[in-house]
């Protein structure tokens, strides 16, 4: 079936069996490989994308439900090859180690900051509770998001 949606600001039409996962459509059809598969069961959050302003696991979304959706993936964060403040904060604060959870974390963080400009550390923790990281202990991820929230409001 043909499905039209907006991805990172551009309108795309794809042709796919309806129950195919949005994750696979992004990675295989659109070659947007920034969004990752870590578990296929909605536990690790590595496949997180923003759909209509909400952070969602793309491994659990059948593409037939994305008609007319506005989707943002990690590739849509940076503007004109410049890192966005969230990405820059991660770089400076050591928020990424192996990097596999990072796209999902950035997406979850972006969704949070779009909703709550100056979250508390507890709010940040809760916002990324669906994004598993095995490398960092979460400390510097929370630091990075906090840092980014302060930059944005300056």
């Amino acid at each position: 079936m043909k499905i039209e949606f907006q991805i990172n600001g551009a309108t795309r039409v794809i042709d796919s069996p309806p129950m195919r996962r949005l994750l696979d459509v992004l990675r295989e059809d659109l070659r947007l490989t920034g969004t990752k598969e870590g578990c296929g069961e909605g536990e690790c959050g590595a496949c997180s994308v923003i759909i209509n302003g909400e952070v969602i696991n793309s491994c659990l979304v059948p593409v037939c439900q994305t008609t007319g959706a506005i989707i943002t993936t990690v590739e849509g964060l940076a503007k004109d090859a410049r890192l966005d403040p969230l990405q820059q904060a991660f770089l400076e604060a050591g928020g990424a180690q192996c990097g596999i959870c990072t796209p999902g974390m950035l997406i979850a963080a972006r969704a949070l900051l779009d909703l709550t400009a100056q979250p508390t550390r507890d709010e940040i923790k809760e916002a990324i509770a669906g994004n598993l990281c095995r490398c960092t202990g979460y400390v510097k991820i929370i630091d990075a998001i906090e840092r980014a929230s302060l930059i944005r409001t300056r």
Binding site: G34, T73, F90, L91, A96, C98, I100, P103, L106
Partner: peptide, 23 residues
């Protein structure tokens, strides 16, 4: 010093290629 990581930027933009990203 806490220099910015050599391997850092790619991991933040989604450009880093892990094995399943390679076609």
């Amino acid at each position: 010093q806490n220099v910015l990581r050599k391997e850092g930027v790619e991991k933040l933009t989604g450009a880093a290629r892990y094995i399943d990203d390679i076609a």
